[in-house]
C-alpha cells in the first residue's frame, strides 16, 4: 500500500482533480441559461447615454473600487485571505523538491524559489490558516455559521503545508512525515472538486458568468 500511495495514487488523485473540475464546470453550464438581467440598482437614463472614452470608464471603475470593494470594508481579513491563497498556489508549484521530482519523472520542471523563501511562504500559509481557525472558534458571528465540515475543509487545506514544513525541517520521523505529506496532498486534490474547495473553479464562474453586485463581467447566466 505504501508504494501504491507514493506511486500510482499521485496520478489517480490528479486525474480525479482534473476530471472532477471538468465535470463541475460542465454541470454548471448545463444547469444555467443565458438571461437578460435587469439591475434596478444601477442608474439608468436612456435619454442621456454617457459619452465617455473607454479609458475614462476604466479609470472611473478603478477609482470606484476604493469605495465599494471588500478591501475597503475588511482590509485585514482580505489581506490575510490574499496571502493565504497566493502562497497556497505558488509554494507547491515553485518548490525545489517538487520540481526535482517532476524533472526526474517527466524530464520537465518549473523554475524554483530558494528553499528559505518557500519555507517563509509555508509559514505565512500556516499562520493564515491558524488565524482562520481562531476566527472560527472565537469570533461569534463566524462561529454560529461554522460546522464540523468547515474545520475538516480547513484541515484538508492546511495539512499538506503542515506536513511539508515537518518534512523540510526533518522534524519527527522523516519517512512517516513524507508519507503523510503525500497522502495529505492527494486528499486535497481529490476533495477539491467535490467539497467547497471547489471555489477554486467557481470563484471565476461567480465573478464572470453570474450577474451580481460582485461580478467583474456582465454576468448573463442564471438558473
Amino acid at each position: 500500500m505504501y508504494e501504491f500511495i507514493r506511486g500510482p495514487m499521485v496520478s489517480i488523485s490528479f486525474m480525479i482533480f482534473i476530471i472532477g473540475l471538468l465535470y463541475q464546470a460542465f454541470k454548471f453550464f448545463a444547469l444555467t441559461r443565458k438571461k437578460e438581467l435587469i439591475f434596478i440598482n444601477l442608474p439608468f437614463n436612456p435619454d442621456k447615454p454617457p459619452r465617455k472614452q473607454w479609458f475614462q470608464r476604466v479609470v472611473e471603475w478603478f477609482l470606484s473600487l476604493r469605495k465599494r470593494t471588500v478591501w475597503r470594508v475588511h482590509p485585514v481579513m482580505t489581506g490575510i485571505t490574499c496571502i493565504f491563497h497566493i502562497s497556497l498556489f505558488i509554494t507547491p508549484l515553485f518548490l525545489l523538491g517538487h520540481n526535482i521530482l517532476l524533472d526526474e519523472a517527466w524530464g520537465m520542471h518549473f523554475w524554483s524559489f530558494p528553499e528559505s523563501f518557500s519555507d517563509g511562504l509555508t509559514w505565512a500559509d500556516l499562520l493564515c490558516g491558524a488565524i482562520f481557525l481562531f476566527r472560527r472558534i472565537f469570533v461569534r458571528r463566524v462561529r454560529v455559521i461554522t460546522t464540523l465540515y468547515d474545520y475538516i475543509v480547513l484541515l484538508i487545506t492546511v495539512a499538506p503545508f503542515l506536513t511539508g514544513t515537518f518534512a523540510y525541517h526533518q522534524w519527527f520521523e522523516y519517512q512517516t512525515v513524507i508519507f503523510l505529506h503525500i497522502v495529505a496532498g492527494e486528499v486535497m486534490f481529490i476533495a477539491t472538486p467535490f467539497t467547497k474547495l471547489g471555489h477554486m473553479l467557481f470563484f471565476f464562474f461567480y465573478r464572470f458568468f453570474i450577474g451580481s453586485e460582485y461580478s467583474f463581467g456582465r454576468g448573463t447566466r442564471m438558473w
Binding site: G97, L101, A167, Q170, Y174, I178
Partner: peptide
C-alpha cells in the same frame, strides 16, 4: 531513499 530528506540530512 526517494525523497530529499532521505539523503540530505540537516
Amino acid at each position: 531513499p526517494r525523497f530529499c530528506g532521505g539523503c540530505h540530512l540537516w
